[in-house]
Deep mutational scan, measured.
Amino acid sequence: MATKAVCVLKGDGPVQGIINFEQKESNGPVKVWGSIKGLTEGLHGFHVHEFGDNTAGCTSAGPHFNPLSRKHGGPKDEERHVGDLGNVTADKDGVADVSIEDSVISLSGDHCIIGRTLVVHEKADDLGKGGNEESTKTGNAGSRLACGVIGIAQ
């Protein structure tokens, strides 16, 4: 089992970053940390998408990683996509320092995120509470600013 993974985020604009993942036990939580720069100040949706395909930019990554066919939600919700990591918060300089621990994603097994795409979005994720159909699919997080395929790390 891989215990570490990394993702280099890039987009068409100024947004870029490096996100690290570490899972010490196969059924334990995954620590997610790193930094994203070039964002507007505020909240930005942060999700693992189904495919590791960036051939047409971030759009070819498909929908959120959702092997259990659930509705979109927040990272602490029972009803959520596996890939729903909530929001990252950018400061006035456009930098989001990421520090998350998640017990639904994994670096092995059915919820493995390796080979899938991590995406940072234009807007805040409403965590499935926006009151419309799009909220239950995407959290109304808007366009995909930057993305990268999650790969095994040393």
Rank of each mutant, 00 (worst) to 15 (best):
A2T: 13
T3I: 07
T3H: 04
K4D: 06
A5M: 00
A5Q: 04
V6E: 10
V6I: 15
V6A: 11
C7L: 02
C7P: 00
V8P: 02
V8T: 11
L9R: 01
L9T: 00
L9S: 04
K10N: 12
K10L: 09
K10C: 10
K10E: 13
G11K: 02
D12K: 14
V15C: 08
V15P: 05
G17D: 03
G17R: 04
I18H: 03
I18K: 15
I19E: 00
I19S: 03
N20Y: 07
F21C: 03
F21V: 01
F21K: 05
E22L: 13
E22K: 06
E22R: 06
Q23F: 00
Q23E: 05
Q23D: 02
Q23R: 01
K24C: 07
K24S: 08
E25T: 15
E25W: 02
S26T: 13
N27W: 09
G28W: 07
P29T: 15
P29G: 07
P29E: 02
K31M: 03
K31G: 03
V32T: 02
V32C: 12
V32F: 06
V32L: 11
V32P: 02
W33Q: 14
W33G: 08
W33E: 14
G34N: 00
G34A: 03
S35I: 15
S35F: 15
S35A: 09
I36L: 10
K37E: 15
K37Y: 07
K37T: 14
K37L: 08
K37R: 11
L39C: 01
T40L: 08
T40Q: 08
E41A: 12
E41I: 08
L43H: 07
H44L: 01
H44A: 02
H44R: 01
H44P: 01
G45S: 12
F46Y: 01
F46M: 15
F46H: 02
H47K: 05
V48L: 08
V48I: 15
H49I: 14
E50S: 11
E50D: 08
F51I: 05
G52A: 06
N54Y: 11
N54W: 10
T55Y: 04
T55D: 14
T55A: 14
T55V: 03
A56R: 11
A56D: 07
A56H: 07
A56Q: 09
A56F: 12
G57L: 03
C58G: 09
C58I: 12
C58M: 07
C58V: 14
T59R: 14
T59A: 15
T59W: 13
T59C: 11
S60D: 13
S60F: 07
A61T: 08
A61G: 10
A61H: 11
G62L: 09
G62H: 14
P63I: 03
P63G: 12
H64L: 05
H64N: 15
F65G: 08
F65N: 05
P67D: 14
L68T: 10
L68D: 04
S69G: 15
K71S: 10
K71L: 14
K71D: 05
K71H: 04
G73C: 10
G73N: 03
G73E: 07
G74C: 02
G74A: 13
G74W: 08
P75D: 07
K76A: 10
D77W: 02
D77A: 12
D77Y: 08
D77Q: 08
D77V: 10
E78A: 09
E78C: 13
E79I: 13
R80H: 05
H81L: 13
H81P: 05
V82N: 03
V82H: 04
V82S: 07
G83N: 05
G83W: 15
G83T: 14
D84M: 08
L85W: 00
G86T: 02
G86L: 01
N87G: 03
V88K: 01
T89E: 10
A90Y: 02
A90Q: 00
A90G: 07
D91I: 02
K92I: 09
K92E: 08
D93I: 06
G94E: 05
V95Y: 15
V95M: 07
V95C: 12
V95I: 12
V95E: 15
A96N: 02
A96M: 00
V98N: 02
S99W: 15
S99G: 13
I100K: 07
I100W: 08
I100V: 10
I100L: 11
E101R: 10
E101G: 04
D102V: 09
D102K: 01
S103P: 15
V104G: 11
V104A: 10
V104E: 14
V104T: 13
I105K: 01
I105T: 10
S106H: 04
S106T: 08
L107T: 01
S108D: 12
S108I: 13
S108N: 08
D110K: 10
D110Q: 09
H111M: 15
H111R: 11
H111D: 08
C112I: 02
C112M: 11
C112R: 07
C112T: 14
C112D: 04
I113S: 01
I113A: 01
I113D: 03
I113M: 04
I114K: 01
G115V: 06
G115Y: 00
G115M: 00
R116L: 08
R116H: 09
T117L: 12
T117R: 08
T117Y: 15
T117V: 15
L118D: 01
V119N: 02
V119D: 10
V119E: 04
V120G: 03
V120L: 11
V120W: 01
H121Q: 09
H121S: 13
E122P: 01
E122Q: 06
E122Y: 07
E122T: 08
K123S: 11
K123D: 09
K123Y: 11
A124W: 14
A124P: 12
A124I: 12
A124D: 09
D125S: 11
D126N: 10
L127Q: 09
L127F: 14
L127H: 04
G128N: 03
K129H: 09
K129F: 09
K129P: 05
G130D: 09
G131I: 14
N132L: 13
N132C: 12
E133L: 12
E134W: 15
E134V: 06
S135T: 07
S135R: 08
T136G: 07
K137T: 11
K137V: 05
T138S: 10
T138W: 06
A141E: 05
G142N: 04
S143T: 14
S143D: 11
S143M: 08
R144S: 14
R144N: 15
L145K: 08
L145A: 12
L145T: 14
L145R: 09
A146G: 06
A146R: 02
A146P: 03
C147F: 11
G148L: 01
G148Q: 00
I150A: 00
G151Q: 14
G151E: 15
